[in-house]
Design a protein around this nucleic acid. Sequence first.
DNA 1: GATGATTTGTACGTATGTATA
DNA 2: ATATACATACGTACAAATCAT
Lengths: 229, 229
Amino acid sequence: MSLPDDPRRTLAEDLRLRIADEIVQGTLVPGAALDETELAHRFEVSRTPVREAIRQLAASGLIDTKPHRGAVVARPTEAEIAGMFEAMADLEALCAARAAERMTGSERRALEAVQEELRALVHLGDPHQFLEADERLHDAIHAGAHNDYLADLTRATRARLQPFRHAPAREVGRLAASHGEHERVVVAIVRGDRDGAAAAMRDHVLIVRDDYGVYVAALPAAERPAPAP
Amino acid sequence: MSLPDDPRRTLAEDLRLRIADEIVQGTLVPGAALDETELAHRFEVSRTPVREAIRQLAASGLIDTKPHRGAVVARPTEAEIAGMFEAMADLEALCAARAAERMTGSERRALEAVQEELRALVHLGDPHQFLEADERLHDAIHAGAHNDYLADLTRATRARLQPFRHAPAREVGRLAASHGEHERVVVAIVRGDRDGAAAAMRDHVLIVRDDYGVYVAALPAAERPAPAP
DNA sequence: GATGATTTGTACGTATGTATA
DNA sequence: ATATACATACGTACAAATCAT
């Protein structure tokens, strides 16, 4: 309905991806209501595929639903966010550990190549491009763990936290620091140092989490995670 | 529709739980087709809530769907199952480690009490009751980690693997052995030995995984995970 | 506390795509 | 290869529940 040639298979699936994207990108902020009729109008479809997309997003944790009360973009408490960051640190550390053990030679070389890219982007100071390459670095590590389930869990966790990671990662000071942290991770993985890779990755993620505190405090009240229900 | 007073809020939610239960309990075996019309008739509802339940189950990974081709109970390959077991071992180990650090005094005492129950049930030799108490033990550890997100991930992973864990856990010889493995875990947690708890738990889960091989080989071809697509 | 407006939940009909003969 | 059968995908109408007045 949107484009001449349609690469999607079903409307519901297409909507799921588009709504998820809007949440992760920040177009739909945490706490925002997802009105079925409104979404149906906006995407020029009926409510049925919208509802099915919402159901799937609810199962993935990106949105919250209450019976007869509709859906809102998930707005976890600070404690829940802290827990998710902790879990993400552990999951990313696991991926890094497995990657150190299992990456093939070409995977290790590709990892180093992305790290080189990042080094160049730090100097350019373009946060958007840096973030894009940063995602590729983490993705390469997830894939290098050679465990699809673990990689999926880790990526899903990153996606759920993405709405709360925009601001810190965009601060320029973080770019160089982040690159330095990555360096430890990449070196350990390439060297096959499982425990070193895990420790370096955990440190990196926890530093990002600490930066998050600043971001939460800067959010307007309506978009801020509730202190405690 | 099933009981005089209905504790559920929506049909779709109720169906999601009931279908998930049938998959986990083994009534619906891996590979079984989930016919919308048939399920709608069986549960005496229209196809709409059935479809929404199926969408949520697909998002949780318990079933697979192909556009215009319906849904089947997930039938992961042997490699995928192995990966999920590996991830479960890591997740359970993480929970055990956190529990060793964070459990309150009463949580530790409750954990020991469940372990005592299990000891008694080994002697009774009732696999069903043993499995029920075993679930409670693991649940107590998940909760004791004091990280809801991590606990949810771990429980979801257990649920996805449950259809492949029936046979091994029911063999009587495993009961006493399983109890012995638990003993190491519980002692380490109560003692606050983080690394010991993690190691003991990882060992326990990996032993269960190794037993799984026997079960897969014993399945009829139609219910057996495909070797490789 | 009751009532009305609004939104979600459910049922059902039709179209479309896939698989089989 | 074409046609036919069948299950799914989507749209629409109605019922039920929640919130505001």
